[in-house]
């Protein structure tokens, strides 16, 4: 592991950059999160291989339309976040605030839709202990759900701080960090959606 990170080594041409946008500490965190999700996804897939019937049966009870809506919502939020970063790079902080709020709104919409799905399961008496499929479905989606909450809070804080004039074209590492984190949350769902809802 290279712990010796020098800030001076960065050439200005983007094609030569070595490190991703945002704080490197956050990228280490992203790596850890992605590892956990990778293990979770493979655990799902390999357990499914032993209970194909069971998984197919209960997969059919899930609401694919909600999942579609949620995927579009997350992608849209990610797009808004990209626009927020683009705006602050051009020093248009008012625009950045607007894009961030829109992204927060999208995150909230995701939570509403997913919450509606959970309410449905709860009413049907489905819990983590109902069967192996629901165990994985609820564990994976709830773990992701909490990530959306965290991501939403991060975007919210960034929106407030941008509004207070904390960031500029010259210094906006935090926004890039928050954006990277949000894209990670999106990325995970991009794999989760087909795996849990579609692939059978």
């Amino acid at each position: 592991m290279d712990m010796h990170i020098k800030t001076t080594e960065q050439p200005t041409r983007p094609a030569q950059r070595r490190y991703p946008p945002g704080d490197l500490a956050l990228w280490i965190f992203i790596l850890a999160e992605l590892s956990v999700f990778a293990v979770f996804f493979s655990a799902y897939a390999f357990t499914r291989a032993q209970h194909v019937e069971l998984f197919s049966t209960y997969q059919a009870t899930l609401d694919c339309n909600s999942a579609l809506a949620n995927t579009l919502v997350l992608i849209t939020a990610s797009f808004f976040v990209v626009r927020a970063v683009a705006a602050i790079q051009r020093d248009r902080s008012a625009e950045t605030v607007r894009w961030l709020w829109l992204a927060v709104l999208m995150a909230g919409l995701f939570l509403l839709i997913k919450g509606h799905e959970y309410a449905h399961h709860l009413a049907a008496g489905v819990t983590l202990s109902t069967n192996t499929f629901y165990m994985f479905y609820l564990s994976l989606t709830f773990f992701h759900f909490m990530h959306v909450i965290l991501g939403m809070l991060v975007l919210l804080v960034l929106a407030v701080r941008t509004r207070r004039g904390h960031y500029s074209a010259a210094e906006h590492t935090d926004i890039e960090s928050g954006a990277s984190y949000w894209h990670m949350v999106d990325l995970v769902w991009i794999v989760l959606f087909p795996l849990v809802y579609v692939m059978r």
């Binding site: 592991m1 712990m3 850890a32 956990v36 293990v39 655990a43 202990s129 564990s139």
Partner: peptide, 26 residues
């Protein structure tokens, strides 16, 4: 305790060596 702990426990505790490894490297 409920059976799902077998998954949650396995997945997260399998990651527990990481901080210790980082500590050694550090």
């Amino acid at each position: 305790t409920p059976a799902y702990w077998k998954w949650w426990g396995s997945i997260f505790s399998a990651m527990e060596p990481i901080p210790f490894f980082m500590m050694t490297v550090f």
